[in-house]
Design a binder for these strands. Structure first.
Lengths: 144, 144
DNA sequence: CTTAATGTAACCACAAATGTTACTATTTGG
DNA sequence: CCAAATAGTAACATTTGTGGTTACATTAAG
C-alpha cells in the first residue's frame, strides 16, 4: 500500500468501526481489515481522535470506536481531518516573480484551487458513514 | 519546485502563451517564467500537444502556441490533459478481501471518488484561459 | 504484576515527481 | 551545404512524501 491513501484508508477504518457497532476495536483488528501495520492505523486514528470523530481508550480492554453516530459523520469531516493541507500542490510552485505572468498567477491559481476543492467537499458532505454502512449490507454483523 | 505541480504549471504555461498572443514561444522562455528547466516544460507541453490544446513547431523560429482561442480552452481541458489518472490514490489501496468490509469498500470508494472528481471538474470547466488572461491585466503585453 | 492496549518517536524502504544532461531530428537563413 | 536554434525524448540523479517497521513508554483491567 503506497501512495496517498490517507483518505481511503480512513473511510475504510471508520466504516469498520460502524460495522463493529460501538465495540472498542483494537488497532490490530482494523489493520487486519485494511491489510497494513497497526501503527499506520493508529497514526491515522490519532488525527481522527483530534478531530473528535473517534474516541480511544487505553488498557487491556481498550480500542477505538466512533465518537458519534454514523449519520452524523460525513466524508467531508473525514477528509478534513486527515488531509490537512489539500493545496499542497501549490506549496512548492514558485514561479519567477520578475515575469508579469509569474507574479500574478499564484494568486489566481489559489482562488481556483479553493473553489474546486469547495465543490469537491460539497459532494463529500452528501455522503455519511451511515450511507456506507448501508451499502455494506448484506453482510454478517460483528467481528469476523 | 517539487511535489505535484503538473496542473498549476500547465495553467501557468498556457496563460503565458495567451499572454504572448499567438507568437511561437520557445520552451526556454516559458521555463524562465515558471522558473524551471526547459525540458520539464517540454515534457508537460508534450501532453498538451497530444490533447490538441497547443501546437508545436520545430526549427530556428519554432516554439509553442495555443491551438485554439483562450475562450475555448477551459481549465478542465488542461486538467484532463495532464492528470491522466486522478484516482491514483486508490491504485495501491488493497484491503483484505477476506474481511466483509475490506471486500466491498473498494467499489464504494471508487464511486465516491468519481462523483467528487466530477464535481471538481465541473468547477474547473467554468474557468477559461480567457478569464485568467483577463485577471492578469493590467500588464504590459508582449515579451518581457 | 502480568497482559494487552494506545501513543509516538525514529528509522528504513519505496514510489513518484522534478531536475539535469545528453543526444537526435527538424527547420530557417545565410 | 552549413550553422544555429529549436522540439522531442531517453536516461539518470535528486528530492520528497508516504507507508512500513521496530522499539518503547504509558495506561488500564483482572
Amino acid at each position: 500500500m503506497t501512495g496517498n491513501t490517507r483518505f481511503a484508508a480512513s473511510v475504510h477504518m471508520l466504516a469498520y468501526l460502524a460495522y463493529r457497532q460501538g465495540a472498542a476495536v483494537p488497532s490490530a483488528e482494523i489493520a487486519s481489515s485494511v491489510d497494513t501495520n497497526p501503527v499506520v492505523i493508529r497514526r491515522l486514528l490519532s488525527a481522527l481522535v483530534k478531530a473528535h470523530l473517534v474516541t480511544a481508550t487505553k488498557g487491556v480492554t481498550g480500542g477505538f470506536s466512533l465518537a458519534s453516530t454514523p449519520e452524523n459523520i460525513s466524508l467531508r469531516d473525514i477528509y478534513r481531518a486527515v488531509e490537512e493541507r489539500p493545496h499542497r500542490g501549490l506549496d512548492h510552485f514558485v514561479p519567477n516573480h520578475k515575469c508579469p505572468v509569474g507574479a500574478k498567477i499564484g494568486t489566481i491559481l489559489h482562488g481556483i484551487y479553493v473553489k474546486a476543492q469547495a465543490s469537491m467537499e460539497a459532494e463529500l458532505a452528501r455522503v455519511t458513514l451511515a450511507d456506507i454502512h448501508q451499502q455494506l449490507r448484506p453482510v454478517c454483523t460483528g467481528k469476523h
